[in-house]
Nucleic acid binder design. Sequence first.
DNA 1: AACGGCACCTGGTCGC
DNA 2: TGCGACCAGGTGCCGT
Length: 271
Amino acid sequence: MPELPEVETIRRGLAPLVEGEQITQLIVREKRFRIPIDKSIQNACFKPIQKVDRRGKYLLLKTSDDAGLMVHLGMSGRFYLLDPAIPPKKHDHVDLQLSNGKILRFHDPRRFGLMLWIEKQLDQHALLNHLGPEPFSEPFSVDYFARCLKTSKRPIKLAIMDAELVVGVGNIYANEALFQAGIRPERPAHSLTLKEIQRLHQAILDVLAQAIEQGGTTLKDFANAEGKPGYFQQKLFVYGRENLDCLKCSKLLKSLRMQNRATVYCVGCQG
DNA sequence: AACGGCACCTGGTCGC
DNA sequence: TGCGACCAGGTGCCGT
């Protein structure tokens, strides 16, 4: 389901509702995730959640600077904040009972997600440590971006989707950013000119910022903690529009598959 | 060492 | 209505 804008939307929705609360009971109905849930998750109980943080597409419910729940929504993960006594439905795998009486319910049909209790050095966890810079952080500079691309032969679309280069750019926003920058997705990364690199850098920031502003992209069932959908899908220029007319130049949008992911571009706009 | 391929899952949709 | 094929917003690991 989520790329960075969706996770950030969830984080912003969740923060005011769960910060300061503690988990009074943690019910695990299904523990088979990308990494299985083990008993240590019960250690998350009875400690106030100080902060809801995000690193890449990981959500961090921190009970201290060092410890907390690390959550990933995978492709299909979702949170619901519910009044108690609403019975769980299919794929409602974990309930966090909060001290304010609400239930934070984790739903994930495909179970590509994860929920782990990390006791120490949460920020340095192996799953976070190898991640590249946050797109809106100072280390993700044009200079850094240019250096990364200079030596890489792989297609530019795959480069910008690589979380070791920059976090948060998934399939939707990779397609959109390349369209906005006017660059074909198959171009070898090192073939981009400095001008193109600057345009793409800006396009990544613009696309992500706009998507966050719109509350993310709702394709099937994405919704924030309050159950509201996102609206960025109304601003998609290429993703999901293969064989339709380009909204800018009216040429037919072409599609191909890269790493088995749908890739859509405009032969007119993306020189 | 960088990079492509694949596996991990369930559910929805489409064509027959 | 049923069935199989294929598709879906992610990512870590494996082999080359």
